[in-house]
Amino acid sequence: MIDLLNALVVLSNYVLIPALAYGSQLALGALGVTLIYGILRFSNFAHGDTMAFGAMVTILVTWLFQGWGISLGPLPTALLAIPFGIAATALLLLTTDRLVYRFYRQQKAAPVILVIVSMGVMFVMNGLVRFIIGPNDQRFSDGERFIISAREFKKLTGLSEGLAFKTTQGITIVTAVIVVAILFWFLNRTRTGKSMRAFSDNEDLALLSGINPDRVVMVTWLIVAGLAATAGALYGLDKSFKPFIYLQLLLPIFAAAVVGGLGNPLGAIAGGFVIAFSEVLITYPLKKVLGYLLPDRFEPDTLVQLLSTDYKFAVSFTILIIVLLFRPTGLFKGKSV
């Protein structure tokens, strides 16, 4: 019995909790990608750097608050700064749309051209972020680090394995749930949300139903700004902020969006968790877990690791390719890629 509990604790400590937090971050990122794909009809490669920008502004404002001595007690000050990150990101995205994307929209440019354009935007945003805050690691978390630390857990339960639950992981999961709930309520229950869905469903008809495309596009960017800045800040808070990391994050985020079905918000969330759990589980050695579960004589000598952690990104890639080959519309029915 104790063995079973220990196995469960090990699995939670190294797989369930990290994957849940990582999945929430991916889901928020993938929601942004999928909304843009659904409504503006292109794959936005600049999304990772949009997240970096949002996180950067959040960091700068956090530092300002810390300098002023404002804090949230046990919670990270960054939570107070996120709204500022969102506002700045919204401004950035609307400006970008005005300067860049609108031109191509009016030209009725093919989606592939918009994809290339978004890559250009990606490089500019990446440069902007590195120019402002530099290419290095930045840490900005403060407050209580743990909801429960491994040592405390061991003392509390008397188990031989510890379970650490970081404050940032808790905040990430809770925030993701709240944001997703609001988003779904918005898309399904409000007129603006329905306009967006209508626009995503059938652009021609939406136009002929008198839906103002400019307004839909603007609202979409605003929501995407909210999602991107929140996702970026939470990721930076939970892990660490480094501009290039967000560029690399683009792959799992797109994998999540595609796996769930591009253009389908529910799919993006499911995809985020599918990717996160696959990445973590496939690279996690089950030696300890099996050691607790199996009788002594079956205890494995090897690590029982399916894939070395170096190949973590290969997991997203493989899932992406399998889905594109066998089910291009994704697990939930999205648009075919």
Binding site: D201, N202, G210, N212
Partner: peptide
């Protein structure tokens, strides 16, 4: 053309533009 993921009634209710819910 139709908004395939919405009900028939929702489809009709999409139509009138300039509703106050749009802002």
């Amino acid at each position: 053309h139709e908004f395939s993921s919405m009900t028939v009634r929702e489809n009709l209710m999409m139509v009138p533009g300039g509703q106050s819910g749009e802002t």
